[in-house]
């Protein structure tokens, strides 16, 4: 009997701990499929963040490191400089990457560090119970912006792909979403492309994935997907922000 659907080899059998309606699971699967697609399971080292994905080391069936909060790009740099032939990725949320770890992120990109960052942006701190994130939208109500994010006092949300695209070391930066089947397909392709570019030694690659947090947004899963489309996408437009291979015929 032909197998038409199975779990990627690069995921373990551990049940995911994520909340119902959270799209971390989809993103984990896309990353694992991309690793499988490159036949890279044995040569991959993943770096987990602090945040909801802190247990990612239980889920990816590859060698894994759990990094201090925000430091995943530095840890990944250490691994990559020792093992340049390995596929090295970090999997980070918005607080980890764009708040406490901004320096590590920006400098990994500016060095053209040959690693891939999977950046999961759901505009909130999930693990700690729904605080304002560096990517929370203007007016967004969170535990620590109970009257809505006031940009006059809390500043503006950071558009990470746009920022990193300005750096010479960034080879590839794309923002995707996993709110619909077509977008999930596009997200999978983006992750695959980032890994391929790393394999070619192109430099720093990042795929930002707009994700949901039904629990802390106070929405049900369907409403959450809708909120990604109606509220997040206008502020964080999907698309390729940098692709050093764009002129070479590969789209």
């Amino acid at each position: 009997m032909a197998i038409v659907f199975q779990k990627p080899a690069s995921l373990t059998d551990a049940p995911l701990h994520y909340c119902p309606g959270c799209t971390h699971g989809i993103i984990h699967r896309l990353v694992a499929e991309a690793i499988d697609g490159l036949d890279a399971q044995g040569s991959t080292v993943g770096v987990a963040p602090v945040g909801c994905a802190v247990f990612a080391y239980n889920y990816f069936n590859t060698d894994m490191i759990e990094a201090p909060h925000g430091r995943a790009p530095a840890v990944a740099t250490g691994v990559k400089r020792v093992c340049p032939q390995n596929l090295v990725f970090t999997y980070q949320g918005d607080g980890d990457l764009a708040a406490i770890g901004t320096a590590e992120t920006v400098h990994a990109a500016s060095r053209g560090e040959n690693i891939t960052i999977i950046f999961v942006n759901n505009a909130i701190y999930g693990m700690t119970g729904g605080q304002m994130a560096p990517t929370s939208l203007p007016g967004q109500v969170t535990q620590t912006s109970p009257y809505g994010r006031d940009v006059k006092t809390a500043g503006h949300p950071i558009r990470v792909c746009e920022m990193l695209a300005t750096l010479s070391g960034t080879a590839y930066a794309e923002r995707v979403a996993v709110d619909s089947v077509p977008n999930i397909r596009k997200a999978g392709k983006a992750i695959r492309k980032a890994f391929e570019l790393q394999k070619q030694g192109a430099g720093f690659t990042i795929v930002e994935v707009l994700s949901t947090c039904p629990t802390n947004w106070g929405l049900n899963p369907v409403e959450s997907l809708e909120w990604v489309r109606t509220d997040m996408m206008p502020y964080y437009p999907l698309g390729v922000y940098k692709d050093i291979t764009a002129g070479e015929g590969t789209k």
């Binding site: 080292v45 770096v47 490191i65 990094a67 201090p68 430091r71 530095a74 840890v75 990944a76 740099t77 250490g78 691994v79 990559k80 400089r81 020792v82 093992c83 390995n86 320096a103 590590e104 920006v106 400098h107």
Partner: peptide
């Protein structure tokens, strides 16, 4: 590194590797 913090975490990554 860009900071002492980044440097020690690069050490962590390299040591793990």
């Amino acid at each position: 590194a860009e900071s002492e913090i980044a440097a020690i975490n690069m050490v962590l990554g390299a040591a793990a590797a």
